[in-house]
């Protein structure tokens, strides 16, 4: 560090910076105006893009979420979001043990499918004990069983032009049925399964019966419950308001929820 002894100098000019710094304090109550400004929102959304790009670069396509032992299961797996879809149609399905539930596989596929729960259970199965991370901050560990989404997409002959997979759900939240989407990296990931069992029993209604998505490297709201359609699309533009998911379209949750 260089040390210089200087003759006297005016100090007032240098206090200018101090006053400028103090001047920023009254801005604090204006924070919400800043938060709501369109330009600021645009800048804020850069973070999502940076996180997605960084994580896609850093995480191997097939890098697995940690799997746990049965001893590490949460004593109770907390349900969240819809706990019981409203309406007579769903109630009738539930009363009938979802025997007539169909999962439509459509969009950019060579062979559109309409799968029953028996079809789903007849496919090769994967069982995994993973940690579910809610965007709110809590975590629960559960054991999930179901076919890999990649197997379902292969059976339907998903086309190369498909860039996203959209999940349609039977639960209505406010003004719309729930929906979510993911890109092909996560759709084809080995741990991405359509689960019909939790902890060795049929999936409870509160957790998404009869079928829900498990997309283990992303947060809980991506894990669509009560799924009745799987669509392959080239763009998210025509889905809801175009951001790819129910919460993404309504309150600006990130579409890429790996963090």
């Amino acid at each position: 560090m260089s040390k210089v002894i200087l003759p006297r100098r005016q100090l007032i000019a240098r206090a200018g910076g101090l006053i400028a710094a103090a001047g920023a304090l009254p801005l604090l109550p204006g924070c919400d105006a800043i938060n709501d400004a369109p330009a600021v929102r645009k800048i804020l959304s850069m973070g999502e893009e940076m996180n997605r790009a960084a994580q896609r670069a850093l995480i191997d396509r097939d890098a697995l979420a940690r799997e746990f032992s049965r001893a590490e299961l949460s004593p109770y797996f907390r349900p969240n979001g819809t706990r019981l879809p409203a309406g007579a149609v769903y109630a009738a399905h539930a009363a009938g043990g979802f025997a007539d539930w169909r999962i439509r596989v459509a969009g950019l596929v060579a062979r559109p499918l309409s799968l029953s729960m028996a079809d789903i259970r007849a496919m090769p199965q994967r069982t995994q004990i993973t940690r579910h991370d809610c965007v709110e901050g809590w975590s629960a560990i559960g054991q999930w069983t179901g076919p890999q989404l990649s197997g379902i997409l292969a059976a339907a002959g998903v086309r190369d032009s498909a860039r996203y997979i959209v999940f349609r759900c039977a639960d209505r939240l406010g003004d719309a049925l729930y929906y979510e989407s993911c890109d092909m990296v996560d759709a084809l990931h080995p741990q991405t399964i359509m689960a019909w069992a939790l902890n060795g029993a049929l999936l409870p209604i509160a957790n998404g019966a009869p079928l829900r998505l498990r997309i283990e490297r992303q947060l809980g709201y991506k894990h669509a419950k009560y799924v009745n359609a799987i669509e392959a699309v080239a763009s998210l533009d025509g889905i809801g308001a175009g951001k790819g998911g129910y919460w993404e379209d309504r309150i600006d949750y990130e579409w890429y929820a790996g963090i």
């Binding site: 995480i59 191997d60 890098a63 940690r131 975590s139 283990e216 963090i259």
Partner: peptide, 23 residues
């Protein structure tokens, strides 16, 4: 706390004793 980073760097969970401990 990032589920994506947990897949890339699972040792983070070992260092801090799990996601909720990290939180």
């Amino acid at each position: 706390m990032s589920p994506g980073m947990n897949a890339a760097w699972p040792w983070l969970l070992d260092i801090f004793g799990g996601r909720q401990s990290a939180r």
